[in-house]
């Protein structure tokens, strides 16, 4: 067994995690889980940023994922506040029931 793995494996792992995030977004009904799926997708992208950073031996990829992380934190704060508000007004977390845009 080889002692190291190619960089492409990291990228494929990133793609798989991203795909899982998309799947969660598509098939889950709970708005919090949907939100977590988005976080999963962001993490997957971060992984590929850091892999590319390794490939080019440049730290810029780290900076990018750092900013992604910051934006994710901001997004989590606002997003969860929105979820709280939605729940207060509608008493539901099911994403399909929040559909007043329909019709």
């Amino acid at each position: 067994m080889p002692t190291t793995v190619p960089l492409t494996w990291y990228l494929i792992l990133s793609a798989i995690l991203f795909g899982l995030g998309v799947a969660g977004f598509l098939f889950r009904r709970n708005i919090i889980t949907v939100f977590m799926s988005i976080e999963l997708m962001l993490n997957a992208v971060n992984l590929s940023f850091i892999s590319f950073s390794y490939k080019w031996r440049q730290v810029d990829g780290h900076i990018f994922s750092f900013f992604v992380m910051v934006v994710a934190a901001a997004e989590a704060a606002v997003g969860l506040a929105i979820i709280l508000t939605v729940f207060k007004n509608r008493s539901t977390l099911a994403i399909d029931e929040v559909n007043s845009l329909k019709n």
């Binding site: 998309v22 977004f25 598509l26 098939f27 994403i95 399909d96 559909n99 845009l101 329909k102 019709n103």
Partner: peptide, 13 residues
């Protein structure tokens, strides 16, 4: 335009 977020997401995919 079903108003269903997840169908939008499917289209995005």
């Amino acid at each position: 335009q079903s108003g269903n977020i997840r169908s939008y997401a499917a289209w995005v995919t």
